[in-house]
Nucleic acid binder design. Structure first.
Lengths: 192, 192
DNA sequence: CGCGACGTTGATTTGCCTCAACGATTGTGG
DNA sequence: CCACAATCGTTGAGGCAAATCAACGTCGCG
């Protein structure tokens, strides 16, 4: 087995047997990404969906004035992707970059159809993945509208303590939709 | 044919023949909703996805302090739903309400499986529907992060002039994530 | 060593909110 | 059918959360 983490991830949302998993693994390739190196650049069609085996990554978009906005933070055991680009196989406007030296497993869009046919549970897994992505995005949007920055930061610490502890403040701030300065002040006030 | 509008909507994103459409129509029911009456209430599992045949509706969620946040505005020819609830068939936290006296067509989740089998193009249509919902949400989130209220309002007028012209200012404001007072001031400044 | 990445702190500004009041419509119950 | 109540939009005054601008300290690394 290439990756126990990956096996567990599949099994969390669908029942994948070990023999099925072996089939899946044949379609997986591994890639190493150095800190601050880009894995996916806007303008490309995202040929893969990425599973973080080790390290940490972020996805972000860039606005008119050149500011980056973090969409997703992912540490080992989690998936990261530009889903709209991956699903439609058309150019996206999202970048994915390593925050630490990382190992990433690549599952190619190209192989999905045949995988779905061989392993019906894979289809279920992906359906759920898309669903979760949508629900998460909706919750974030709602939180951004209705909660203050401090409350959103509290929530993040509560739900993803590892992420909050490990990822540099600048990216956390961007994820929360505020400036590093603001988050720094919020933290100061929160831990005292 | 019950509804030409509905037929056109299907055909915009998938090729549905008239004979296929007749099959679909057998699963559709019509419902009249009076202004300010609720079509779907939070806590319910959304059994239907709704097509607006006539009138206008909004979907919204309510935050801790009791404020409403409009998620979607839909006039005739458009779909509206609590997708996460509809897809998972579990209780949602979204309300759908008529802004004007409206006619709505109901497509039940219960019938989808069999429809997908009979009319493969239906599956394609729904896949695209989900995709568009996701992309739209992501764009809105990005806009909320990077643009000022005035710019977001401009965009809305540009992309959905009919909506902007017809829907009361309070709902537009909520959709943009600002107060009615703020939008009123933005408008004053914009049209002078 | 020197430079870039990262975090902090202070001073000031600003976009939008809150609260309050008021007019114009539209809706409704007696 | 009229009176009164909501709904909707506007305007003004004041306040606040977070942004901006600027400066500085620490750390890791080529």
């Amino acid at each position: 087995m290439i990756s126990t983490l990956l096996f567990e991830s599949f099994n969390k949302y669908a029942r994948i047997s070990e023999t099925d998993f072996e089939v899946i693994e044949q379609h997986i390739t591994k890639r190493f990404v150095k800190k601050r190196k880009t894995l996916l650049m806007q303008g490309e069609a995202s040929r893969y969906i990425y599973f973080v085996e080790k390290g940490a990554l972020r996805s972000y978009s860039i606005d008119k004035v050149g500011n980056e906005h973090v969409l997703q933070l992912a540490i080992e055991g989690h998936w990261i992707a530009d889903l709209s680009s991956f699903v439609s196989q058309s150019p996206g406007n999202i970048n994915i970059e390593a925050i630490e030296d990382s190992e990433v497993l690549l599952l190619p869009h190209h192989d999905l159809e045949s995988l779905f046919e061989q392993i019906p549970q894979m289809e279920r897994f992906f359906r759920q993945l898309y669903q979760r992505a949508y629900v998460t995005l909706q919750q974030r949007h709602h939180a951004a509208q209705s909660d203050h920055a401090e409350e959103r930061y509290r929530q993040l610490i509560h739900e993803h303590p590892y992420v909050a502890a490990r990822i540099p403040l600048i990216y956390i701030a961007s994820y929360l939709g505020i400036t590093p300065e603001s988050l720094s002040r919020i933290r100061k006030q929160l831990f005292s």
